[in-house]
Design a protein around this nucleic acid. Sequence first.
DNA 1: CGCACCCCCTGCCGGC
DNA 2: TGCCGGCAGGGGGTGC
Length: 270
Amino acid sequence: MPELPEVETVRRGLAATIVGRRVEGVTVAERRLRRPLAPAFASALTGRRIVGVGRRAKYLLLELDDAATWLVHLGMSGTLVVAPADAPVRRHTHVIAVLDDGRTLRFHDPRRFGLMRVGSRADLAELAALGLEPLDPAFSAAFLRATARRQRRAMKSLLMDQRVVAGLGNIYVNEILFEAGIRPGRRTSRLTRAEAERTVAATRRVLTEAIAMRGSSINDYRDDRGEPGAFQDTFRVYDRAGEPCPRCHATIRRRVIIGRSSFYCPQCQS
DNA sequence: CGCACCCCCTGCCGGC
DNA sequence: TGCCGGCAGGGGGTGC
Protein backbone atom coordinates (compact mmCIF):
# COMPACT_ATOMS: atom_id res chain seq x y z
CA MET A 1 0.00 0.00 0.00
CA PRO A 2 1.64 3.03 1.19
CA GLU A 3 4.54 4.16 -0.91
CA LEU A 4 6.27 7.51 -0.67
CA PRO A 5 3.31 9.71 -1.75
CA GLU A 6 0.97 8.11 0.78
CA VAL A 7 3.50 8.32 3.61
CA GLU A 8 4.25 11.93 2.70
CA THR A 9 0.52 12.74 2.77
CA VAL A 10 0.24 11.28 6.27
CA ARG A 11 3.36 13.16 7.35
CA ARG A 12 1.96 16.49 6.22
CA GLY A 13 -1.35 15.87 7.93
CA LEU A 14 0.27 14.86 11.21
CA ALA A 15 2.74 17.76 11.06
CA ALA A 16 -0.23 20.13 10.90
CA THR A 17 -2.30 18.49 13.62
CA ILE A 18 -0.26 16.74 16.31
CA VAL A 19 3.03 18.64 16.58
CA GLY A 20 3.24 20.14 20.06
CA ARG A 21 0.95 17.52 21.59
CA ARG A 22 2.06 15.40 24.51
CA VAL A 23 1.40 11.68 24.71
CA GLU A 24 -0.54 11.09 27.91
CA GLY A 25 -0.92 7.36 27.63
CA VAL A 26 -0.46 4.44 25.25
CA THR A 27 -2.62 1.34 24.93
CA VAL A 28 -1.18 -1.65 23.11
CA ALA A 29 -3.77 -4.20 21.98
CA GLU A 30 -1.47 -6.27 19.77
CA ARG A 31 2.31 -6.41 19.97
CA ARG A 32 2.81 -8.86 17.11
CA LEU A 33 3.58 -6.61 14.16
CA ARG A 34 6.26 -7.39 11.57
CA ARG A 35 8.47 -7.56 14.63
CA PRO A 36 6.97 -7.61 18.12
CA LEU A 37 6.69 -4.22 19.81
CA ALA A 38 9.44 -3.88 22.41
CA PRO A 39 8.35 -4.33 26.06
CA ALA A 40 9.28 -0.68 26.71
CA PHE A 41 7.42 0.69 23.68
CA ALA A 42 4.53 2.30 25.59
CA SER A 43 6.69 3.68 28.39
CA ALA A 44 9.12 5.22 25.89
CA LEU A 45 6.26 7.28 24.45
CA THR A 46 4.32 8.14 27.57
CA GLY A 47 4.86 11.71 28.74
CA ARG A 48 6.80 12.69 25.60
CA ARG A 49 5.87 15.67 23.48
CA ILE A 50 5.81 15.29 19.68
CA VAL A 51 8.03 18.08 18.36
CA GLY A 52 8.12 17.25 14.64
CA VAL A 53 7.04 14.77 12.00
CA GLY A 54 9.55 13.71 9.36
CA ARG A 55 9.78 11.09 6.67
CA ARG A 56 12.57 8.98 5.26
CA ALA A 57 11.59 6.77 2.31
CA LYS A 58 8.42 4.97 3.49
CA TYR A 59 9.15 5.54 7.17
CA LEU A 60 7.38 8.14 9.29
CA LEU A 61 9.60 9.70 11.92
CA LEU A 62 7.79 11.27 14.86
CA GLU A 63 10.38 13.33 16.70
CA LEU A 64 10.03 13.35 20.48
CA ASP A 65 11.15 15.97 23.00
CA ASP A 66 13.75 13.65 24.54
CA ALA A 67 15.58 13.42 21.17
CA ALA A 68 14.21 9.94 20.50
CA THR A 69 12.32 9.10 17.32
CA TRP A 70 9.07 7.16 17.04
CA LEU A 71 9.58 5.23 13.84
CA VAL A 72 6.49 3.97 11.97
CA HIS A 73 6.31 1.86 8.83
CA LEU A 74 2.80 1.23 7.50
CA GLY A 75 3.65 -1.99 5.66
CA MET A 76 0.92 -3.00 3.21
CA SER A 77 -2.23 -2.16 5.12
CA GLY A 78 -1.25 0.17 7.97
CA THR A 79 -2.84 3.54 8.78
CA LEU A 80 -2.00 6.18 11.37
CA VAL A 81 -5.11 8.21 12.01
CA VAL A 82 -6.00 11.03 14.40
CA ALA A 83 -9.43 10.43 15.94
CA PRO A 84 -11.50 11.75 18.84
CA ALA A 85 -11.07 9.76 22.03
CA ASP A 86 -14.65 8.53 21.88
CA ALA A 87 -14.52 7.36 18.25
CA PRO A 88 -15.36 3.65 17.95
CA VAL A 89 -12.32 1.39 17.88
CA ARG A 90 -12.08 -0.56 14.65
CA ARG A 91 -10.95 -4.17 14.54
CA HIS A 92 -7.15 -4.41 13.97
CA THR A 93 -6.40 -1.21 15.85
CA HIS A 94 -3.22 -2.31 17.57
CA VAL A 95 -1.99 0.84 19.33
CA ILE A 96 -3.81 3.94 20.61
CA ALA A 97 -1.89 6.96 21.92
CA VAL A 98 -3.97 9.45 23.92
CA LEU A 99 -2.86 13.05 23.29
CA ASP A 100 -3.08 15.95 25.75
CA ASP A 101 -5.86 17.65 23.77
CA GLY A 102 -8.16 14.66 24.17
CA ARG A 103 -7.64 13.28 20.68
CA THR A 104 -6.00 9.96 19.93
CA LEU A 105 -3.45 8.73 17.41
CA ARG A 106 -4.34 5.21 16.28
CA PHE A 107 -2.26 2.60 14.48
CA HIS A 108 -4.49 0.24 12.52
CA ASP A 109 -3.05 -2.59 10.41
CA PRO A 110 -5.04 -5.72 9.45
CA ARG A 111 -2.10 -7.56 7.89
CA ARG A 112 0.36 -6.56 10.61
CA PHE A 113 3.20 -6.05 8.15
CA GLY A 114 3.75 -2.63 9.71
CA LEU A 115 6.50 -1.76 12.15
CA MET A 116 6.91 0.64 15.07
CA ARG A 117 9.92 1.34 17.23
CA VAL A 118 11.24 4.08 19.48
CA GLY A 119 14.94 4.85 19.57
CA SER A 120 17.63 7.37 18.89
CA ARG A 121 18.19 8.09 15.21
CA ALA A 122 21.53 6.30 15.38
CA ASP A 123 19.84 3.19 16.81
CA LEU A 124 17.25 2.92 14.07
CA ALA A 125 18.99 0.37 11.88
CA GLU A 126 16.13 0.41 9.38
CA LEU A 127 17.26 3.83 8.19
CA ALA A 128 20.95 3.07 7.84
CA ALA A 129 21.00 1.30 4.49
CA LEU A 130 18.42 3.38 2.66
CA GLY A 131 19.37 4.90 -0.67
CA LEU A 132 18.58 8.32 -2.09
CA GLU A 133 15.27 10.07 -1.71
CA PRO A 134 13.73 10.01 -5.20
CA LEU A 135 12.78 13.70 -4.98
CA ASP A 136 16.27 14.72 -3.85
CA PRO A 137 18.34 16.38 -6.59
CA ALA A 138 21.04 13.78 -5.83
CA PHE A 139 18.76 11.25 -7.55
CA SER A 140 19.91 12.47 -10.93
CA ALA A 141 20.13 10.97 -14.39
CA ALA A 142 23.90 10.76 -13.98
CA PHE A 143 23.52 8.84 -10.71
CA LEU A 144 20.88 6.52 -12.11
CA ARG A 145 22.80 5.74 -15.26
CA ALA A 146 26.07 5.10 -13.41
CA THR A 147 24.29 2.81 -10.94
CA ALA A 148 22.33 1.03 -13.65
CA ARG A 149 25.26 0.43 -15.97
CA ARG A 150 27.38 -1.40 -13.44
CA GLN A 151 24.61 -3.91 -12.72
CA ARG A 152 22.68 -6.34 -14.82
CA ARG A 153 19.15 -6.68 -13.55
CA ALA A 154 15.62 -5.60 -14.42
CA MET A 155 14.97 -1.85 -14.34
CA LYS A 156 12.01 -2.49 -12.09
CA SER A 157 14.21 -4.36 -9.64
CA LEU A 158 16.64 -1.44 -9.49
CA LEU A 159 13.93 1.17 -8.88
CA MET A 160 12.31 -0.95 -6.17
CA ASP A 161 15.64 -1.55 -4.41
CA GLN A 162 15.40 0.63 -1.31
CA ARG A 163 19.19 0.62 -0.96
CA VAL A 164 19.46 2.46 -4.27
CA VAL A 165 16.47 4.80 -4.28
CA ALA A 166 14.17 4.66 -1.27
CA GLY A 167 10.43 5.16 -1.26
CA LEU A 168 9.20 3.70 -4.54
CA GLY A 169 7.00 0.61 -4.54
CA ASN A 170 5.13 -1.50 -7.04
CA ILE A 171 2.47 0.98 -8.13
CA TYR A 172 4.72 3.97 -8.70
CA VAL A 173 7.50 2.01 -10.39
CA ASN A 174 4.97 0.69 -12.90
CA GLU A 175 3.67 4.20 -13.55
CA ILE A 176 7.15 5.74 -13.73
CA LEU A 177 8.42 3.18 -16.23
CA PHE A 178 5.36 3.75 -18.40
CA GLU A 179 5.97 7.50 -18.35
CA ALA A 180 9.63 6.88 -19.18
CA GLY A 181 8.79 4.48 -22.05
CA ILE A 182 10.90 1.66 -20.59
CA ARG A 183 9.77 -1.91 -20.00
CA PRO A 184 9.98 -3.11 -16.40
CA GLY A 185 12.08 -6.11 -17.42
CA ARG A 186 14.67 -4.08 -19.35
CA ARG A 187 18.25 -4.79 -18.30
CA THR A 188 19.79 -1.91 -16.38
CA SER A 189 23.09 -2.52 -18.13
CA ARG A 190 21.54 -1.25 -21.38
CA LEU A 191 20.11 1.98 -19.99
CA THR A 192 20.96 4.92 -22.23
CA ARG A 193 21.62 8.47 -21.12
CA ALA A 194 18.30 9.64 -22.59
CA GLU A 195 16.42 6.84 -20.84
CA ALA A 196 18.03 7.72 -17.51
CA GLU A 197 16.92 11.32 -18.03
CA ARG A 198 13.38 10.21 -18.80
CA THR A 199 13.26 7.90 -15.81
CA VAL A 200 14.36 10.58 -13.36
CA ALA A 201 12.00 13.14 -14.88
CA ALA A 202 9.12 10.65 -14.78
CA THR A 203 9.90 9.80 -11.15
CA ARG A 204 9.65 13.46 -10.13
CA ARG A 205 6.53 14.03 -12.19
CA VAL A 206 4.64 10.96 -11.00
CA LEU A 207 5.53 11.37 -7.32
CA THR A 208 4.81 15.09 -7.29
CA GLU A 209 1.43 14.60 -8.91
CA ALA A 210 0.58 11.69 -6.61
CA ILE A 211 1.44 13.75 -3.52
CA ALA A 212 -0.72 16.60 -4.84
CA MET A 213 -3.57 14.11 -5.13
CA ARG A 214 -2.94 12.83 -1.60
CA GLY A 215 -1.74 9.40 -2.72
CA SER A 216 -3.41 6.28 -4.07
CA SER A 217 -6.01 4.18 -2.28
CA ILE A 218 -6.82 0.73 -3.57
CA ASN A 219 -8.16 -1.00 -0.48
CA ASP A 220 -6.55 -0.04 2.78
CA TYR A 221 -4.70 3.21 2.44
CA ARG A 222 -6.14 6.17 4.36
CA ASP A 223 -4.50 9.44 5.34
CA ASP A 224 -4.23 10.83 8.88
CA ARG A 225 -7.90 11.88 8.76
CA GLY A 226 -9.03 8.47 7.52
CA GLU A 227 -9.65 9.75 3.98
CA PRO A 228 -8.57 7.93 0.79
CA GLY A 229 -6.29 9.51 -1.82
CA ALA A 230 -7.28 10.19 -5.43
CA PHE A 231 -4.28 9.25 -7.56
CA GLN A 232 -5.60 5.71 -8.20
CA ASP A 233 -8.05 7.27 -10.65
CA THR A 234 -5.16 8.42 -12.81
CA PHE A 235 -3.21 5.14 -13.04
CA ARG A 236 -2.05 4.73 -16.62
CA VAL A 237 -1.03 1.06 -16.47
CA TYR A 238 -1.19 -0.24 -12.91
CA ASP A 239 -3.84 -2.97 -12.65
CA ARG A 240 -4.99 -2.22 -16.20
CA ALA A 241 -4.01 -5.47 -17.94
CA GLY A 242 -6.20 -6.00 -21.00
CA GLU A 243 -7.22 -2.35 -21.21
CA PRO A 244 -6.06 -0.01 -23.97
CA CYS A 245 -2.89 2.03 -23.46
CA PRO A 246 -3.90 5.67 -22.84
CA ARG A 247 -1.29 6.81 -25.38
CA CYS A 248 -1.43 4.32 -28.27
CA HIS A 249 -4.41 2.05 -27.50
CA ALA A 250 -2.34 -1.14 -27.63
CA THR A 251 -3.37 -3.65 -24.97
CA ILE A 252 -1.68 -3.30 -21.57
CA ARG A 253 0.12 -6.46 -20.48
CA ARG A 254 0.75 -8.00 -17.09
CA ARG A 255 3.87 -9.96 -16.27
CA VAL A 256 5.47 -10.98 -12.97
CA ILE A 257 8.92 -9.49 -12.42
CA ILE A 258 10.84 -9.93 -9.16
CA GLY A 259 7.71 -11.54 -7.84
CA ARG A 260 5.45 -8.53 -8.33
CA SER A 261 2.74 -7.80 -10.88
CA SER A 262 4.13 -5.58 -13.59
CA PHE A 263 2.04 -3.71 -16.13
CA TYR A 264 3.31 -2.15 -19.34
CA CYS A 265 2.39 -1.15 -22.84
CA PRO A 266 4.18 -3.39 -25.34
CA GLN A 267 4.03 -0.60 -27.90
CA CYS A 268 5.09 2.50 -25.92
CA GLN A 269 7.65 0.85 -23.66
CA SER A 270 10.87 -0.70 -24.92
C1' DC B 1 25.10 -11.26 -8.04
C1' DG B 2 20.28 -11.35 -9.07
C1' DC B 3 16.22 -13.63 -8.83
C1' DA B 4 12.76 -17.16 -7.61
C1' DC B 5 10.55 -18.64 -3.83
C1' DC B 6 9.33 -18.78 0.86
C1' DC B 7 7.57 -16.41 5.03
C1' DC B 8 4.93 -12.94 7.91
C1' DC B 9 -1.13 -11.76 7.96
C1' DT B 10 -5.98 -10.61 6.81
C1' DG B 11 -9.35 -9.45 3.39
C1' DC B 12 -11.44 -9.42 -0.96
C1' DC B 13 -12.76 -11.09 -5.38
C1' DG B 14 -13.87 -14.32 -8.94
C1' DG B 15 -14.85 -19.02 -10.21
C1' DC B 16 -17.19 -23.12 -9.36
C1' DT C 1 -24.80 -19.18 -0.94
C1' DG C 2 -20.35 -21.04 0.46
C1' DC C 3 -15.86 -22.61 -0.14
C1' DC C 4 -11.27 -22.23 -2.25
C1' DG C 5 -7.47 -20.38 -4.70
C1' DG C 6 -5.20 -16.35 -6.07
C1' DC C 7 -3.91 -11.93 -5.29
C1' DA C 8 -2.79 -7.45 -2.72
C1' DG C 9 0.57 -1.13 -1.87
C1' DG C 10 6.08 -4.10 2.07
C1' DG C 11 10.22 -6.29 3.59
C1' DG C 12 13.37 -10.05 4.95
C1' DG C 13 15.37 -14.56 4.56
C1' DT C 14 17.25 -18.71 2.00
C1' DG C 15 19.16 -21.09 -1.69
C1' DC C 16 20.32 -21.73 -6.52
